[in-house]
Design a binder for these strands. Structure first.
Length: 237
DNA sequence: GCGACAG
DNA sequence: ATCTTGTCGC
């Protein structure tokens, strides 16, 4: 699928934050239109020892949850992990994977926040703008915002508030597990986001597209690590 | 200054 | 995220 170029990636943290503030104004929050038949999931894994980063995108067909396509990308780590700037570390590799995708998904689920972000532009929102496609953030833990504990049953949720507004939902995707932090990225709203995540549920904590992408990158990291015989990469003390 | 802090 | 062993529970 086509990937837009809205800015550079070799930015200082300060510059990156400024880009996020500029991108925020371009986000569109509205109900998802039409039935989602084709949904993609993206995830990243990295190896501190080799300094490699692995990205994968898996496309599924709904409601069967059948895998239609997989794309894998490996490259060197080019940006550190800084809370609030995750997309500057992970998005470039994911975008390369999306660019190689043959089919254009109706929506994309990303492992990370959507608009539940200090500047409203979590990695899912950022990718949505660059892909010009509806995106939903599905994070496994909280970055910011306040909320009550959601009910214990699958499908139970509690609103996630930030700056006096509801920006997402804390969703229990199955009983007995910690909830997911779901928030719309681009071209989507909270209700549509929650609905899509539940529609992509295959009985596990994470929605199937993200879970399968995660399984792929984990396998890539292990296999690449086993092949690598070079000494550990230099790291900061 | 102190605590929080997606992956 | 990654580093790691065993272990509690269905």
């Amino acid at each position: 699928m086509r990937v837009r170029e809205l800015h550079r990636w070799d930015l200082t943290p300060r510059e990156a934050m400024r880009v996020q503030e500029r991108l925020r104004a371009r986000l569109v929050t509205r109900p998802l239109r039409g039935a989602v038949r084709c949904v993609a999931g993206g995830d990243i894994a990295c190896c501190n020892r080799t300094g490699r980063l692995f990205a994968a995108v898996v496309v599924l067909r709904l409601p069967e949850l059948e895998t239609l396509e997989e794309v894998r990308v490996a490259r060197g780590v080019a940006y550190p992990y800084i809370p609030g700037l995750l997309s500057f570390r992970e998005a470039p590799a994911l975008l390369e994977a999306f660019a190689r995708l043959r089919c254009a998904p109706d929506a994309v689920l990303v492992d990370g926040q959507g608009q539940a972000h200090p500047r409203g532009v979590g990695i899912a929102a950022h990718l949505g703008l660059l892909l010009d496609t509806p995106t939903v953030g599905c994070a496994k833990s909280r970055l910011c915002g306040e909320h009550d504990e959601p009910g214990p049953e699958a499908g139970d949720s509690a609103p996630l508030f930030l700056g006096g507004h509801c920006v997402g939902a804390v969703l229990r995707t199955r009983r007995g597990v910690r909830p997911l932090y779901v928030s719309p990225g681009h071209l989507c709203d909270i209700a549509s986001s929650v609905r899509l995540v539940l529609d992509c549920g295959g009985g596990y904590r994470s929605p199937e597209p993200v879970r399968r992408a995660h399984a792929l990158v984990t396998r890539m990291r292990i296999e690449a690590g086993a092949r690598d015989h070079s000494p550990p990469v230099a790291r900061r003390s």
